[in-house]
Design a protein around this nucleic acid. Structure first.
Length: 448
DNA sequence: ATCGGCTCGCGCAA
DNA sequence: TGCGCGAAGCCGAT
């Protein structure tokens, strides 16, 4: 049984006979997916068939072919897995508020289940879909271990205020997943396999940012990466994760972003291992507390991606320093082309452009410097989000918006000694990096 | 190498 | 109302 606290009703609608459909969006996987499991539970109870739909919009924020490619390969794998479970998959190119209601009507669907997403575009989709269908629309938080609305009913001030709330209820939610069953009731019409090449042609995205080859998309690759991480990197994770030139991080974030792996699965597998307590604690802190804090911020703060969303003390101090002299002011193009005076910053930017992933520690330095080298915090926020969303495989994620808000707007942070431009926002420096890790090695690794 | 001061406001104890 | 403490620091003194 899926814990009912993971489920909310978005639109009550009228209970109706007919297939149960999972509208897959944020959680693009067939294993360990509470939304999919909940849909199957409803379908079994009612002795109905079930199906999965994915609505593919022709463009989304600043996503490029790099992102669509990673995503589509993952969904293609999901289609195969679902077919084996007697669950048909339907890819609907177009806009959800048109495609989903039309699909519901054409196929006499009885119930719609969606996955949880705090970002405004997708909330808008769901709101309008809900208004246009007369059947129940559920939402399941398949993303977080503790459902976002259970963890806290309000925007949290920092990790330290969310942490105890999560810790209190974590044992109730950190449970193992049931397996998805081969569905006993078949969909009436025989479904056709998606024409994936045809689907690619419907996209209206920037194809100049290309695919990356250091990481393979899909949930099987995600599981492999997790096993390899636990075997090879977890033991020294605490020691190496903040050392950018060393390869000490999990590399799971693209999978987590597209929902090709569940954070709860990662937490379960890591918890099962013995020893390495400090490393495990560090990973679980990042995977659960900090990730859920990002969802909390974006869910409860409608201005999660702009200046207005920053705390009052941060807005005030940034306002007080608007007229401070800037030694360097760079344009979006300068930043994009890694054309600053700072070799370390340029190396981080190149890492992101070429690999679609920047080391977690460097993301902080990178964001802080964008604030320092632009004319205003608004401009800095815009540029940081644009670059992050365009190049990082895990862009357009609550983690990204929250990270930028931390760097530039003091979100989830505290005041620090006043200095030019930053005011009381925490500062980071080249010398600080130099004292913590081998900056030359990192620059060499990401040279032009 | 390590330490203290810098600085704000939440949340809890009282 | 007081107090402890926080998402990843910096800088200068020792």
């Amino acid at each position: 049984m899926v814990n009912q606290k993971r489920v909310r009703i978005l639109e009550k609608g009228k209970e109706k006979a007919g297939p149960v459909v999972y509208w897959m969006s944020r959680d693009q996987r067939t294993r360990d997916n509470w939304a999919l499991l909940f849909a199957q539970e409803l379908a079994l109870e009612r002795r109905e068939p079930m199906g999965v739909v994915f609505c593919l919009v022709p463009r989304f924020l600043d996503a490029t072919m790099r992102h669509y490619d990673f995503m589509l390969k993952g969904i293609q794998e999901a289609e195969k897995e679902l077919t084996k479970k007697n669950i048909p998959f339907f890819l609907l190119p177009g806009i959800p508020e048109e495609e989903i209601p039309s699909f519901v009507n054409r196929n006499g669907i009885g119930t719609l289940v969606s996955d949880f997403e705090p970002l405004r575009i997708k909330r808008g989709w769901k709101k309008r879909v809900g208004e246009q269908v007369d059947i129940p629309l559920y939402e399941v938080d398949a993303r977080n271990v503790v459902p976002c609305w259970i963890a806290s009913p309000k925007q949290e001030y920092g990790a330290y205020t969310l942490r105890p709330k999560i810790r209190r209820v974590l044992p109730d939610y950190l449970e193992d997943f049931p397996l998805l069953r081969k569905h006993p009731i078949s969909w009436k019409a025989k479904s056709k396999e998606t024409n994936w090449d045809g689907v690619r042609k419907t996209l209206d995205v920037d194809r100049s940012v290309s695919e990356v080859n250091w990481i393979q998309p899909g949930e099987k690759s995600a599981q492999r990466t997790l096993r390899k991480f636990i075997r090879e990197k977890l033991p020294r994770y605490d020691e190496l994760r903040n050392d950018p030139p060393k390869d000490g991080t999990s590399n799971l974030s693209p999978y987590l972003h597209f929902g090709q792996i569940s954070a709860q699965r990662v937490a379960l597998e890591v918890s099962k291992t013995t020893g390495h307590k400090k490393s495990k604690d560090a990973l679980l802190e990042e995977l659960i507390v900090r990730r859920e804090l990002s969802d909390n911020f974006c869910f409860y703060n409608p201005n999660y991606d702009n200046f207005e969303g920053f705390p009052d003390w941060a807005k005030k101090t940034l306002d007080d320093h608007r007229r401070d002299r800037r030694e360097y002011i760079y344009s979006l193009e300068d930043f994009q082309n890694a054309n600053t005076h700072d070799r370390l910053w340029n190396a981080a930017q190149r890492e992101m452009v070429e690999k679609g992933k920047m080391h977690g520690y460097m993301r902080m330095y990178w964001g802080k410097k964008i604030l320092e080298w632009t004319a205003s915090p608004e401009e800095a926020t815009k540029i940081a989000i644009y670059l992050n969303d365009r190049y990082e495989l895990d862009g357009r994620d609550t983690n990204g918006y929250t990270g930028v808000a931390w760097c530039i707007g003091g979100v989830h942070d505290r005041a620090w000694p006043t200095r030019p431009i930053f005011g009381k926002i925490r500062y980071m420096s080249y010398n600080g990096c130099k004292s913590k890790f081998d900056v030359i090695a990192y620059i060499q690794k990401n040279r032009a």
